[in-house]
């Protein structure tokens, strides 16, 4: 009997304005590191991180998108496959907060209807440069019925919590399969495309 490497595969997506720290948030989560030099993401990139939730090994494939408008056509083509989307803004950048509604519209247009959404106000370590009050983030999240965290990739605040919460929310919606129900119908297009059971071969 071969050891399985994971029970579930969740595909997540990071979106938001250029420079809000999407790549840093992901880098903190996947490699527990932080880099101060700003390198603009070209188009689309991804990282893999396996976590354990409720006794299940969940492989998170996290797509990191370029925030720049010029990559828009490339990045939006990745919305469809995502089961969870993290919308990131920068608490020191008012424009990035104003653009949230634009990003939410993008989700509505391009992502699956049942996609799990989450709002992150990043760079919360920079309190002296804050221009977006926490209450405003909470308010817009409430209006759209989505979860909200203020995070700091630099100071490692709420990063893991945000990813694990998003994964949990997706897990809750994922129909529980019996271990012997392998070869699940993956053509259904529902949120279980990543389901794989490799035991008992």
């Amino acid at each position: 009997m071969a050891k399985k490497t994971y029970d579930l595969l969740f595909k997540l997506l990071l979106i938001g304005d250029s420079g809000v720290g999407k790549t840093c948030v992901l880098f903190r989560f996947s490699d527990d590191a932080f880099n101060t030099t700003f390198i603009s993401t070209i188009g689309i990139d991804f990282k893999i991180k396996t976590v354990e939730l409720q006794g299940k090994k969940i492989k998170l494939q996290i797509w990191d998108t370029a925030g720049q408008e010029r990559f828009h056509t490339i990045t939006t083509s990745y919305y469809r496959g995502a089961m969870g989307i993290m919308l990131v803004y920068d608490i020191t950048n008012a424009k990035s907060f104003e653009n949230i509604s634009k990003w939410l519209r993008n989700i509505d247009e391009h992502a699956n209807e049942d996609v799990e959404r989450m709002l992150l106000g990043n760079k919360c370590d920079m309190e002296d440069k804050r221009v977006v009050p926490k209450a405003k983030g909470e308010q817009i999240a409430r209006e759209h019925g989505i979860r909200f965290f203020e995070t700091s990739a630099k100071a490692n605040i709420n990063i893991e919590k945000a990813f694990l919460t998003l994964a949990e929310d997706i897990l809750r919606k994922t129909p529980v399969k019996e271990p012997n129900s392998e070869n699940v119908d993956i053509s259904s297009g529902s949120g279980v495309t990543g389901w794989k059971s490799k035991c008992c071969s």
Binding site: K3, Y78, R80, S187, S201
Partner: peptide, 23 residues
Amino acid sequence: KSAMVEVDLDAPAQNGAAAINDA
């Protein structure tokens, strides 16, 4: 005994084509 083939990096979902690709 290779049980770990997990190439799951399907091309970005081009709507309908993605599911087929996945499958």
